[in-house]
Amino acid sequence: MLKYYKGSFLFTAICLGLAGWLGWETTGTVGGTLGILWIVAVLGVLEVSLSFDNAVVNATVLRDMDEVWRRRFLTWGILIAVFGMRIIFPLAIVAIAAKMGPIDAVILAASDPARYEEIITGAHIGISGFGGAFLAMVGLTFFLDEDKDVHWIGMIERPFSDLSKISGLAIGLVLLALYLLSRSLSPSDAMTFITSGIFGLLIYIAVQSVGALLEQEGEEGVGDAVTGTVVKSGLASFLYLEVLDASFSFDGVIGAFALSNNLFIIALGLGIGAMFVRSMTIMLVEKGTLAEYRFLEHGAFYAIIALAAIMLMSVQFHIPETITGLIGAALIGISLYASLLHKRQEQAAEAAAPGDTSNHN
């Protein structure tokens, strides 16, 4: 296990050291410093839990990638994932929300954190609408799938799977939630909330469309030795994985605003999570243990829906950051336990089967 995660633990130690320094510089108190360290740690855990599906897809593609491009994905790809999507993209959100240039946003965050916090707090309604709508679509789409045949909590998931035949149901549910929550806001805030939520829906649709187009092109190129357009090899696979990674990272990046509005805290926490997701991906590929944890992905998507609900409701209610993080961690932990329990039950059933001498792999 250490060979897969030693780099991630070293990176975590560096990030926590920077977080401790940042906490002391900004608060000057032990309590404030510990609070920031806690938020960074929770963001790291939340990013891992929300990005489990990312690790699954990455592992699936990496199994068919040659060793050279696999190493490039785990080196060049981590730079793009950590410094691109976890720093540049949040900075773009902050800059848009605060209506200033990205350089000005960085300078403001470093030189006047109080003013920076005030500006971001003023943009909370728009951020919550955008992030909550996007996360809700991510979660609902997983459960509203008629081809989904593995259910963790059947009494909840089977009806949702059947409802997937209703076209556009997920979008309709999100729009309804945006409308109902906006009724308690002032007219100007309601317009901001609904408009931001609609843009969250549009971004989700755009991300899904890009992924579908790439997948279609990949399927058309499989086995085409003449043109060399096989998506599972070399550079094509590398680019394919980076687009998928960017798509999956939206939920963690947007969801981070439910825990903190500080750009540097978000970058440190999500960077830790991104490193562990990369380590998890390569471990799943090399050890081939992905199928052993049957319900982990379900737990991740329940965590996404919980975070989406918290972000949307935060325009009316204040929910402590620690509760937000613990809900996600608890759902992942319970799904892991359920997966292990299911595996033991299957093994017991196989052992009890009379006359079964086959070799189960």
Rank of each mutant, 00 (worst) to 15 (best):
A19N: 00
G20K: 02
W21N: 10
W21I: 11
L22V: 01
L22G: 00
G23D: 03
W24P: 04
E25Q: 09
E25P: 02
T27D: 10
T27Q: 14
T27M: 14
G28V: 11
G28N: 13
G28S: 14
V30P: 11
V30D: 15
G32A: 08
G32Y: 03
G32L: 05
G32Q: 08
T33S: 00
T33F: 00
T33C: 01
G35V: 04
I36Y: 01
W38C: 11
W38L: 15
V40M: 00
V40D: 00
A41Q: 04
V42E: 06
V42T: 08
L43D: 04
G44S: 07
V45D: 03
V45T: 09
V45F: 10
L46G: 09
L46F: 15
E47G: 06
V48C: 13
S49A: 14
S49G: 15
L50P: 06
L50E: 06
L50N: 10
L50K: 06
S51C: 14
F52P: 01
D53C: 09
N54S: 09
N54D: 13
A55P: 15
A55S: 15
A55D: 12
V56H: 13
V57Y: 10
V57N: 05
N58Q: 11
N58Y: 15
N58K: 13
N58V: 09
A59C: 12
A59F: 10
T60Q: 02
L62V: 12
L62N: 06
R63P: 03
R63M: 09
D64V: 08
M65K: 03
M65P: 01
D66I: 14
D66A: 12
E67D: 06
E67T: 07
V68Q: 05
W69L: 04
R70T: 10
R70K: 03
R71Q: 14
F73K: 01
L74P: 05
L74C: 15
L74A: 12
L74S: 10
T75K: 09
W76F: 15
W76P: 05
G77W: 15
G77A: 11
L79H: 14
L79I: 14
I80Q: 13
I80V: 08
A81N: 06
V82Y: 01
G84T: 02
M85G: 00
R86D: 04
F89I: 06
F89M: 03
F89S: 00
P90I: 14
P90F: 02
P90W: 03
A92P: 01
I93V: 15
I93W: 15
I93F: 12
V94E: 05
A95V: 07
A95I: 07
A95Y: 03
I96F: 03
I96W: 08
A97Q: 04
A97I: 06
A98Y: 00
A98W: 00
A98K: 01
K99M: 14
M100H: 10
M100K: 08
G101W: 06
